[in-house]
């Protein structure tokens, strides 16, 4: 898993940490959490990105299609699946998170 836990930089003030990375049908998908410019703390923004390659250059596109997100997220974060299917458990997680 090459990209796992690396930081991906779109620009100086647009940096993301790779929480999870999976290859589905030959294409790399990453679940990202935003980080601050100093890269020493997390910012609570999340997204799924899809990677494209042109030679050694990597490009990322944010997955915005609702159906794709619903399909891919359980693959990237299996831990989230039980919460997606179970609101009660999600509530417990909320308590834990705050």
């Amino acid at each position: 898993m090459d990209g796992l836990y690396t930081v991906v930089e779109f620009s100086k003030d647009d940096k993301w940490f790779v929480i999870s990375e999976k290859i589905i049908d030959g294409i790399k998908y990453s679940y990202l959490i935003r980080v601050n410019e100093k890269e020493d703390d997390f910012i609570n923004e999340f997204q799924i990105a899809k990677s494209y390659y042109d030679g050694s250059a990597e490009y990322m596109d944010i997955v915005s299609d609702k159906e794709m997100i619903k399909k891919i997220m359980p693959v990237l974060m299996p831990e989230a699946e039980e919460y997606i299917n179970n609101p009660k458990k999600l509530k417990e997680l909320l308590n834990q998170a705050s």
Partner: peptide, 11 residues
């Protein structure tokens, strides 16, 4: 927990 929460929320 927040990461999982984010994942669940987005999904």
């Amino acid at each position: 927990p927040k990461i999982i929460l984010g994942a669940a929320a987005i999904a």
